[in-house]
């Protein structure tokens, strides 16, 4: 199955549940403990995670706030590289084949590995696709070619300050889903959602139809920290991405992570 199809099915399944939207969780590969990471991920899936965004640790994560930076540094110290992350992804998929995994990697490790080799590895491990936070469609010709050749999703990000023209360009370019960045800033927990988030999502929904991408799920991320955030966003987005708030619980214990995920989806703890 192509990565895009696997992601599409995960969003469809989530749409039919009481939560209405897919719960997408970001975990830094191998964090907090490489030896227990597979168990941690399995626990997260059991607790309701619909799609895993597996973070590749990188020396210079400019789009990330303190929590993910610290997890990335710790994972690097534990020896987690892009190659190791791909192995970890492969083992996760063997254990939980029905839930899609996408990588989140800055561009440089991918370039170092070789774009084609990277997408070949995604395919052979069964990884559905990749999100590259420092790659915009304007610079992505070679990456898009390779993603399409290996049938992997290449998820682009759209920002609240993207112009109409850019929003449409990104909607056309993105495959798998669209990552809507909810605020002008870096990743990290926030007390409140951006006041414009609903309007932003509605605009994107309207425009995806206009550019003929009505089938492209839209997932909202950055700053999502609380169950009420999830509930509010689930009314307007097809998926909600939780990162730093999850990492913080993962660092505590897998029980804490599972309890938080259940609360997010409103299925009690």
């Amino acid at each position: 199955m192509s990565g895009i199809e696997a992601i599409r099915r995960a969003f469809l399944r989530a749409e039919g549940t009481p939560a209405k939207a897919a719960l997408i969780g970001y975990l830094t590969a191998g964090y907090p403990d490489p030896r227990e990471f597979l168990d941690l991920v399995e626990t997260a899936f059991d607790a309701g995670l619909d799609l895993l965004e597996l973070g590749v640790p990188f020396s210079d994560p400019v789009a990330d706030g303190k929590t993910i930076q610290a997890s990335s540094e710790a994972a690097l110290r534990a020896g987690i590289t892009l190659t190791k992350t791909l192995e970890i992804a492969g083992r996760i998929i063997e254990r939980v084949p029905e839930k899609p995994v996408v990588l989140m990697s800055y561009l440089n490790p991918i370039l170092r590995m070789g774009i084609d080799r990277f997408f070949g590895a995604l395919k052979s491990k069964g990884v559905a696709g990749v999100i590259i936070p420092d790659l915009i469609p304007d610079e992505a010709e070679a990456v898009r070619d390779a993603a399409s050749r290996h049938e992997r999703a290449l998820v682009f990000l759209v920002a609240p300050n993207s112009t109409t023209e850019r929003r449409k360009k990104i909607l056309r370019a993105s495959t798998g889903f669209l990552y809507a960045i909810g605020l002008e800033g870096v990743t990290g927990e926030r007390d409140d959602l951006s006041a414009d988030s609903a309007e932003f999502l509605q605009t994107l929904r309207k425009e995806r139809g206009e550019v003929g991408r009505g089938d492209l799920p839209i997932a909202y991320g950055f700053g999502v920290s609380r169950p009420e955030h999830f509930r509010e966003l689930a009314r307007h987005a097809d998926g909600v991405i939780v990162g730093s708030a999850l990492i913080r619980r993962a660092a505590e214990s897998k029980e804490s992570l599972a309890a938080f995920l259940r609360t997010l989806k409103g299925v009690g703890s």
Binding site: V62, D134, I136, D138, E139, F156, A159, N161, S162, R166
Partner: peptide, 12 residues
């Protein structure tokens, strides 16, 4: 060269 930045920095 080029512009390898998060989308939020494209407009600025």
């Amino acid at each position: 060269g080029g512009v390898y930045v998060p989308e939020t920095l494209v407009r600025p």
